[in-house]
């Protein structure tokens, strides 16, 4: 009797699990299956030629297509109009992530909607940012303490290492620079060109392994593969000096990202990146958003940042001599 009940129980669990699994799989596949992209000559799903823009994949501090009024305040702006400014927060920066993000990120259904934000177009993915409950990153306490200590030295910058990489005209590290972008596909690589900081992402599709650990790079070393309509990109070999935003000073060399670019129609790519930096966070966290075809942008123009820039001189003063 007991054993029969046990068997029934097991069966029920198995059935429920199977049903759950099947329906989850069906749900997960439901959206991509609705769109069948064209194929490249060698059979890869084809990313529509041309220029793309980013929506919602901002750092904590920006979004390419966000209207000026919807842009967040600069966290280092010490004026009263910026209530989450680091400088205006001598109280220890608690809750910075939540307060800052609430200014510009759309909700995950966890709070009130921003009435000023336009509704997404039909069928469009909600624009997000950090896809974490409350958008609070899972900091390790010691990393969070180091971060707060660091941030208090950034305005004014107490030295070169307290200056954000954007002010130094460096590549952004994670794939969050302001657009536009151009995607080019060959049989061995997906190449993404960025107007911002004129960087190129070389995503190797030919099965080669990652670079040896000796190589530490701003944009890391990327390997891609297709899973259905999703380009999955695994990136390692980061250099430990790029940041996710002004509020997170650096991501460590141990950082590994997994990006998923899902073609949902000819003009839309859903984007999700999982950021795993075990030295600073208790678990990986995600940022999600979208790329949309920018039909009104014919080409990438030149973004010459370092050439003639006086930003560093303004912040750090004139070097004694070159």
């Amino acid at each position: 009797m007991r054993s029969k009940l046990f068997r029934v129980g097991i069966t029920a669990v198995l059935v429920i699990t199977a049903v759950a699994f099947v329906s989850t799989a069906a749900f997960a596949q439901a959206r991509p299956a609705a769109y069948t992209p064209a194929k490249t000559p060698d059979g890869q799903p084809k990313i529509t030629d041309g220029i793309w823009n980013r929506r919602g994949v901002g750092g904590l501090d920006g979004g390419a297509l966000e209207a000026e009024a919807q842009r967040p305040n600069n966290p280092l702006d010490p004026t009263a109009r910026n209530p989450v400014s680091v400088s205006a927060r001598p109280d220890g920066l608690n809750n910075t992530d939540r307060g800052f993000l609430d200014q510009f990120s759309e909700k995950l259904g966890l709070g009130a909607e921003d009435p000023d934000r336009p509704a997404p177009l039909p069928g469009q993915r909600q624009l997000m940012g950090i896809a974490e409950p409350g958008r609070i990153l899972p900091w390790k306490p010691e990393a969070n303490a180091a971060r707060q200590d660091f941030l208090l030295k950034t305005n004014p910058a107490k030295g070169l290492k307290y200056l954000e990489m954007d002010a130094r005209c460096m590549q952004p590290g994670l794939f969050f620079g302001n657009g536009p972008f151009q995607f080019l596909q060959t049989d061995k690589q997906v190449t993404i060109l960025s107007e911002y900081q004129h960087f190129t992402r070389h995503i190797n599709m030919d099965g080669r392994p990652h670079l040896p650990k000796t190589f530490k790079m701003f944009m890391g070393d990327s390997i891609g593969k297709w899973e259905g309509n999703t380009l999955v990109v695994d990136t390692t070999n980061f250099n430990g000096i790029t940041s996710y935003s002004r509020e997170i000073p650096y991501l460590s060399e141990a950082t590994r990202t997994t990006e998923r670019f899902t073609l949902t129609d000819a003009n839309t790519i859903d984007y999700e990146v999982t950021i795993d930096d075990p030295t600073q966070f208790t678990r990986p966290w995600k940022v999600t958003g979208q790329y949309t075809k920018a039909n009104d942008l014919p080409e990438l123009l030149e973004y010459a940042c370092w050439e003639g820039s006086i930003t560093m001189r303004n912040i750090l003063g004139d070097p004694p001599s070159k």
Partner: peptide
């Protein structure tokens, strides 16, 4: 890294 090593100036 070379010219701003000892910044700020």
């Amino acid at each position: 890294e070379r010219i701003y090593k000892d910044a700020p100036f």
